[in-house]
Design a protein around this nucleic acid. Structure first.
Lengths: 99, 99
DNA sequence: CTGATGGTTAAGCACTCGCTTAAGTATCCG
DNA sequence: CGGATACTTAAGCGAGTGCTTAACCATCAG
């Protein structure tokens, strides 16, 4: 999940998919690498649950799975919130000290 | 940044730090690995900007850098929002079609 | 000073990652 | 049918990652 977003090429693919579904060819277009390489990235994204795809005829269409993205976002938000609230308590404590 | 969160041990460290500052020893405690290994993870977290640390006497104290976490959160939120709003437009379009 | 504590450096090793090329397979078009 | 298109599989390779052990340095307590 986090590993899937660790790679810049994969983030480019997610970025593209955030603007709507795309074929493998379309995903590969802004990337300077072979098609098999793109397939490998796509597999990582699918296994992480971030992306799903289905094949119709000879074309595979890929789309984002927002729920999975939300899980990553939530984990980060939770950690950050915990830390920020700790800072708030510290500030409160320091303000109390002053008087 | 995303690479830093790709590793489970590093996420455990971030989780610990989200509940307040900690020494290297304390970060290592829940991890089943040698201290040098923890140091290496810490370096990755510092280079990503997620964590900062300072040494006083022989003790190094580490703390979370919420701003960096927020950047990651924001990237994900943006991509997810783009996709969700696309779904909204699709829904609008389909509702319009019905009439 | 001496031992214990907390951290740091260096070297090395197994494994994974991201990519490649080469050679398929399965449609679709004319 | 025959060629072009869109993927797919397999094999392999160089670089990077995550870990280890061994040795070392710097502080602090007694």
């Amino acid at each position: 999940m986090y590993g899937a977003l660790a790679d810049g090429s994969r983030r480019t693919m997610v970025d593209r998919l955030s603007r709507g579904p795309a074929t493998v060819k379309q995903l590969a277009e802004p990337l300077t690498m072979s098609l098999p390489a793109v397939l490998q990235h796509l597999r990582v994204l699918e296994e992480s649950g971030l992306v799903s795809s289905e094949k119709v005829g000879r074309v595979r269409t890929c789309r984002l799975q927002p729920a999975a993205l939300q899980a990553a976002e939530q984990w980060i938000a939770d950690r950050r919130a915990g830390w920020v609230s700790r800072l708030d308590r510290l500030e409160e404590f320091l303000n109390g000290e002053e008087q």
